[in-house]
Amino acid sequence: MHDIKETIHEVIFAVLPIACVVILMQFTIIWLPMETFLQFLAGLVMVTLGLMFFLVGVQVGLLPVGEMIGSALPRTGKASLVIIFGFILGFVVTVAEPDVRVLAIQVDIVSDGQIGKNLLIYTVALGVAFFVGLAMLRIILNIPITYLLVGGYGAVFLMASFTPAHFIPISFDAGGVTTGPMTVPFILALGVGVASVLRGKTASSDGFGLVALASIGPILAVMLLGVFFT
């Protein structure tokens, strides 16, 4: 019960500043039509309630399940299963990520349907999935994350020289939207669970860094899409 109250307070204090700023601008500068302003207030209420339910759901379901799955996979004794399921979970969680869908819809609208939203969603999801699988391999082999980050971003800047200009900003935005409220809790919990079993609780910090790696995947994937799309 205490956690629920704390979540409600967090959401209210997170939403309150933007609500105050928009309301202040409404009655001083912009003077939106009253119908539009009322739609904003209704949307604000729905967003607040949705965030409350979502964050409670993350604490009750996503985090514990993600860590339990991460703990159970290494006990099978098969590294390939850890990597394969890391790939699968990275893909399906990204497909469910609301931020990815918002980006895909905007790109679909701006490109007049040339870059379909489903194409972009699945491209981003494949990029995340590949790098989550790579992150699982890193935990298993105890590879320093610095090497993978330097190599990954080196590949990003190399690919940028071959990618059409209009795809570069989309690719970096794709990397940003994968750090949303659905993907981050699950992937972090998964990594901590895997690391805690393979090298004990004291090494559970090895489970962190998955989000940094996972955000490289969609950047490269969208850049590749741009190269082949044109």
Rank of each mutant, 00 (worst) to 15 (best):
Asp3Glu: 12
Val15Leu: 06
Leu16Met: 08
Ile18Ser: 13
Ala19Thr: 11
Val21Ile: 15
Ile23Asp: 08
Leu24Thr: 09
Gln26Cys: 07
Ile29Glu: 11
Glu35Cys: 00
Gln39Tyr: 13
Phe40Cys: 04
Val47Tyr: 07
Phe54Tyr: 15
Val56Tyr: 14
Gly66His: 06
Ser71Val: 07
Ser80Met: 06
Ser80Leu: 10
Val82Thr: 11
Ile83Ala: 09
Gly86Asn: 01
Gly86Ala: 06
Phe87Met: 13
Leu89Cys: 03
Gly90Arg: 04
Gly90Ile: 10
Val93Ala: 15
Thr94Asp: 06
Ala96Leu: 15
Arg101Ser: 09
Val102Trp: 08
Ala104Phe: 08
Ala104Tyr: 06
Ala104Gln: 02
Ile105Leu: 10
Gln106Asn: 14
Val107Trp: 02
Val107Met: 01
Ile109Trp: 02
Ser111Lys: 03
Gly113Asp: 09
Ile115Glu: 08
Leu120Arg: 09
Val128Thr: 15
Val128Leu: 09
Val128Tyr: 03
Phe130Gly: 08
Leu134Asp: 03
Met136Trp: 07
Leu137Phe: 14
Ile139Cys: 03
Leu141Trp: 12
Pro144Trp: 00
Pro144Asp: 05
Tyr147Asp: 03
Leu148Ser: 05
Leu148Glu: 03
Leu148Cys: 03
Leu149Tyr: 00
Leu149Lys: 03
Gly151Ile: 06
Gly152Ile: 04
Tyr153Cys: 00
Gly154Leu: 11
Phe157Tyr: 08
Thr163Leu: 02
Pro164Gly: 08
Ile170Arg: 00
Pro181Ile: 11
Val184Ile: 13
Val184Leu: 13
Phe186Asn: 05
Phe186Lys: 03
Ile187Ala: 04
Leu190Ala: 01
Gly191Thr: 01
Arg199Gln: 14
Gly200Pro: 11
Ala203Thr: 09
Ala203Phe: 12
Ser204Val: 09
Asp206Ile: 09
Asp206Tyr: 15
Gly207Lys: 02
Phe208Tyr: 15
Leu210Trp: 14
Leu210Lys: 05
Val211Ile: 15
Leu213Thr: 08
Ala214Gln: 05
Ser215Val: 06
Ile216Asn: 04
Gly217His: 07
Ile219Arg: 08
Ala221Tyr: 07
Val222Ala: 10
Val222Glu: 10
Val222Trp: 05
Val222Tyr: 10
Leu225Arg: 02
Gly226Ser: 12
Phe228Asp: 08
